[in-house]
Amino acid sequence: MSKPTTSTARRLGLTLAAAIAVALPVREARADYWVPTEGDYTLNICSGNLGSGICASAGNLPLDEGFEWTDFTELPQSDSPTGTFNDATNSYVVCNSTDGELTVNVYVYRTINLKNEFQHDTLVLEPQGCEFVNLTETDASSIEITP
């Protein structure tokens, strides 16, 4: 076996870094909802109805773990499109990019740190499916999802 060259080693290093990046959950502000990459699921909460407006998105979420977003003001505002996300929250979107059906429970809260729940939905997501759900109130501050 030939010894890896510097460029090969660098490529391997980059590949490893890319794999780690894919595996770790990430959060961003987006102009629309975030669709998932292969084998994970995403959670988006958006200022407009049915996934429209500005969305705060959590992606690369592993299937065996839930996710908590305890304070929407933690959003990286420098990445945010114009407008302030916290002005209103009107909908959330959950996407499943796996080959199997995914059932999740979503809890939405009025205040930070997952307090004062006002909405709980159980969603059955088809393979490669997303569900767009409008919120019953517009002042959500935290959310959690459990597969």
Partner: peptide, 12 residues
């Protein structure tokens, strides 16, 4: 496709 009332379900 199971769809909640008042929601939309997108299938890729």
């Amino acid at each position: 496709v199971t769809v909640k009332n008042g929601a939309c379900h997108l299938i890729n």
